[in-house]
Design a protein around this nucleic acid. Structure first.
Lengths: 121, 121
DNA sequence: CGGGATCCATCGAGATACTG
DNA sequence: CAGTATCTCGATGGATCCCG
């Protein structure tokens, strides 16, 4: 944040919204119940649909399908179909998806200290 | 993320959940419709309740009250009551709350490039 | 195996009115 | 001014069954 402008708040409401937009995008991309588990699982290794369903306990195929589709649209996940019988589909993180790791790590570090702080109260 | 362990995924499901927990904490802290606008507004300057209500267009006193209370519980926001007549209440970010700025900035940078990438498609 | 379709429960959030 | 109390609704996600 541009602290040089904090003193008298010269930002208009519109500027403030513009500031927030890209942050909200990422929060939404990582938010929801299943996005993080799926991204983390794929950061470990590529997975097939059924593998993910087994790995991420509690998820239904409906939600798995939905989130994977969304992550694919956002360019974070690759979907590779192999024409075996029966058909197999492999999901993997794109290089771009992997670039989220550093963001997640930054967030995680703050979150770890936060946990300590809250627990100590 | 510990990339040295990514190759064969030695993480158990439990370890994976433990890994995610602090990340989820932060996402929840910044998620929802009003948390970011409130935090950003308070990062500019301290505000009274009514000032926030005016500044953050569309928010109802109910939601404002709710989120402020939650942010206070999480140690991000101070609530100072002044016994004037009528009573005035000033909200401000704690030093701890301000420490979130660097996290938000990291998230925002990634989000900005993401916007470019998505728009160009 | 890799999903889609449908129905249903829960929860975040809006609208409105009211209080100390 | 600084909130609280109800009521309501739409979105998120769960349960279950089905298909190529």
């Amino acid at each position: 944040m541009d602290t040089t402008k904090n003193i008298s708040n010269p930002y208009t409401v519109t500027e403030c919204k513009t500031f927030i937009l890209p942050v909200r995008d990422v929060i939404d991309l990582l938010g929801g119940k299943w996005r993080l588990p799926i991204i983390i699982a794929l950061s470990f290794k590529n997975h097939r649909f059924k593998e993910l369903e087994r790995q991420i306990e509690g998820i239904t195929p409906r939600m798995l399908s939905k989130v994977l589709k969304d992550l694919e649209i956002n360019g974070l996940v690759n979907r590779d179909v192999f024409k075996t019988t029966p058909i197999t589909v492999e999901y993997s993180l794109t290089d771009y998806g992997k670039s989220l790791d550093k963001v997640i790590e930054t967030v995680r570090e703050w979150g770890l200290t936060h946990r300590q702080k809250i627990i100590n109260k």
